[in-house]
Amino acid sequence: MIMQKLSRQWRKSDYDEDDKFTLPTRDDFRPIDSQEQEELVRSLEKVQTQQSLLWRAVFSGLLLCYVAFLLYSIYQQAYYPWELRYHAYFIYEVDAWTIIAADWAAILACLMTIKGLLHEANYCKRWLWSSCCIGMIVAVFWLHHMLRLARFRWDILWLPLGPLSGAGVCIYVDYLLTVSSEEVRKLRGYMYAYKAR
């Protein structure tokens, strides 16, 4: 009898201290009423919307930084040809304007990715997949010329993989955010009518 009393007191004091770190007990499995369900679902929708905006903005910002770098690269190649080391490797392989065109294609792929990522509509997903195709073309171009060099340069592997990996990562991020949004929508569909007495 004393052991049961001590056990109850211990559980109760332990539960009070670490309230947010404990699993629910049998008493916590009461159904929540309709208003509580609505508040819970609304708060989850709000959090999901904020997270979606945040992560879309973060990855779009990273791609914009890459676009700014590519614009600098184009400027350098146009006005001071072959001064950048990663372009100088191709001095005997490709003419300067072809490199500038490849950088413009990479910029186009990144901008299409940004447009597809920032707009959540289904038709905008085509922008993501189209940017992936353009990134593939840019990757094939750079890899072809990298393989023609006397020695393969691992330090410029970002040239072929930059736009393609940017598009691929953004497609994955968009997929995760869409799945999360659908899960919250499903949760709204699972709401039930209950009135607490």
Rank of each mutant, 00 (worst) to 15 (best):
A109P: 08
Q37V: 02
L161G: 03
V140P: 00
T178V: 10
R42G: 04
Y192W: 14
P24Q: 07
G162K: 09
S52H: 02
I99M: 14
Y72C: 12
H145Y: 15
A193E: 15
L117V: 05
E93D: 15
I74F: 09
Y89T: 13
Y190C: 14
V184M: 07
V41G: 08
G168F: 04
Q76R: 14
A101D: 05
A196Q: 12
D33M: 02
T113P: 05
A101V: 04
L44S: 05
E182K: 14
N122H: 05
R11W: 06
R30S: 13
Y75P: 03
S52M: 03
D27F: 01
G116I: 00
F29L: 10
L177P: 05
G61C: 02
V58W: 06
R188E: 15
D27W: 01
L71C: 13
K46T: 12
T25H: 01
Q37R: 02
C132F: 15
I134Y: 07
W158S: 08
I2H: 11
L147S: 04
W82M: 13
K115W: 04
E93Q: 15
L147V: 02
S60N: 04
S43G: 13
A106L: 03
Y86V: 12
Y89R: 13
R188C: 09
L176N: 08
R151Q: 11
T25I: 00
S165E: 02
Q9N: 09
D27Y: 03
Y89P: 08
V67I: 15
G166T: 03
